[in-house]
Design a protein around this nucleic acid. Sequence first.
DNA 1: CTGAAAGCGCTTACAG
DNA 2: CTGAAAGCGCTTACAG
Lengths: 341, 341
Amino acid sequence: MEQEAAPKITDVARVAGVSTATVSRALSKPETVAKQTREAVLAAAAETGYRINLAARNLRRRSTGAIVLLVPNLGNPFFSQILAGIESTLSSRGLSTLMVDTKHSGSGDEFILDYLHHSRADGIISLDGSLPPSILNSPGMAAENLPIVFGCEWLQNGHYPSVRANNEQGALLAIEHLASLGHSNIGYINGPDENVLSQVRKASTKRALKDRGVPVREDWFFAGDFTLESGASVARKWMKMEDRPSAIFCANDEIAFGLISELHQSGIRVPDQLSVIGYDDIDIAKRYIPALTTIWQPRFELGQTVAELLLKGVTDGGFGDTIQVKTLPVRLIIRQSTSAP
Amino acid sequence: MEQEAAPKITDVARVAGVSTATVSRALSKPETVAKQTREAVLAAAAETGYRINLAARNLRRRSTGAIVLLVPNLGNPFFSQILAGIESTLSSRGLSTLMVDTKHSGSGDEFILDYLHHSRADGIISLDGSLPPSILNSPGMAAENLPIVFGCEWLQNGHYPSVRANNEQGALLAIEHLASLGHSNIGYINGPDENVLSQVRKASTKRALKDRGVPVREDWFFAGDFTLESGASVARKWMKMEDRPSAIFCANDEIAFGLISELHQSGIRVPDQLSVIGYDDIDIAKRYIPALTTIWQPRFELGQTVAELLLKGVTDGGFGDTIQVKTLPVRLIIRQSTSAP
DNA sequence: CTGAAAGCGCTTACAG
DNA sequence: CTGAAAGCGCTTACAG
């Protein structure tokens, strides 16, 4: 097949009868060019089928037109709506998204560092709060001041702009719901200990319990890791206990599914024998059996918001002294996995 | 913060005491350079902290170092493992992945065309078989002969390399399983009619039924669209029928969940009153209630395979006359949603 | 408002 | 095996 040369800016210039400088201006800053000229250029561009070569523009502008998106686990459906929100915002501004799964494949620190160092990006959105300092202190980041924004999760020991859902409110709503149903024996299954969301949800759960006058039983605060199996594992423990909680709040929906499913295998029914609340409201939650009571987060909006925040940093060449932390409200979705004890 | 200039190839050349041409060679084709020179260059690169500027390389080489990945719906957890497989393969070769959700946001044809035309990619992987011809016949594709490969789905009227799971085998395994359980009243819920997977699975289901001597009841072949709700909708129809199938094979797991969940709301139990088989074996399937019998596909491997296939096309500058279609085996996973009628 | 010219940071035939 | 030089396709101060 014949390799047809793509039209370039010189072709448009020739057809329009102007210089390449004028073509460039007419295309990127139309208002700086006389109307008549502009129209001639646009017509010439259409006629020749001109499409800009981004590598050339980026080289010249010393930008990349791309942002790196760090996702802890692409396999978790929780992220899909967030990704969609980010992508729609970014692409509407002509930026592309380079997705990197921080838990997968060649994606160790090395790999991520490479991405950043090879100047493949104008900025970074991280949905992973466990970014090692080696990354944040690397030349590509610190020295060149590459804007970074966190979404959902955030960095413990760092002061960066971020957007998150209101985790304190989520825990509060869950506990209030259980307590108002009459539960006074309430347990909790956490996500990974090192995860900021786990930490906040756990602490907020304890606080909500105390505020409500419900006893905090440390032996009913179970470890988990956001997986189905960690929920199942707690189910087995629960069944062996003599003194059991009558309701359990889970740090995410998957834990809740694992818990309910494992209990079901042994003939224990939710919510009859145990009330369960999840967190995230992933799609399947409303079609689980029983339909899962859970905490909804504005995932798409969160994605949009974090993208907009980053965009601002990219445009302004950094965030200056105003490090914004935006918190979005959550909602309790009452379904069928909770009832009076 | 001071904008520290990134070291470039001239800096390395100066430190190593050679020309930029030699630095370039030592870095990309080490074997063409004398050992001593090579080592001096490598040392100088390390000393200066040199990282290549990809925009410059790509401009010069007329390549992009990126491939575009077209995904029908990032929100569907089915794709996550496939994405992981693609990404790991591509990134190990130093290529980045530009993910485009074909169903979302600004991602109409226009948007995708833009991606391709702006020469943002060296190749395309599409997990979407409904790519309009306008895209495939666009200048960026046809004239420049951009390599494209399909994964999972494929194009009806086009002859492109592709990797897919064995859908015929999947339908056969499902029907054999139901028939061997003693079912002779078997229904089917399809995905979207225009989808190639739907078409193949439906046709294969009919064929398997015939081969097995089980009557094909057109009124038991339901329309669906791969969503939870389309499964729920069939549940409502099923409940109103006088003459009902005793088993239903669903074109994906989500349809099965919607079906089972809606039946459950009305007190109808699976598999006691209806056996259900899904397709895909997404993570939650084994923790659904009941655990879902389904068809497993080698998703990660499929992702790797499709990426390797594309890589070959990129390296060879096209696929020539050998258009490969690879078919991967599937497996029946028997769990608790199926039983004798 | 427009153009000539320099230059972004690489790579690669070409010559030696 | 190595270097001088051209050039990938744009953008942008500068001058007019």
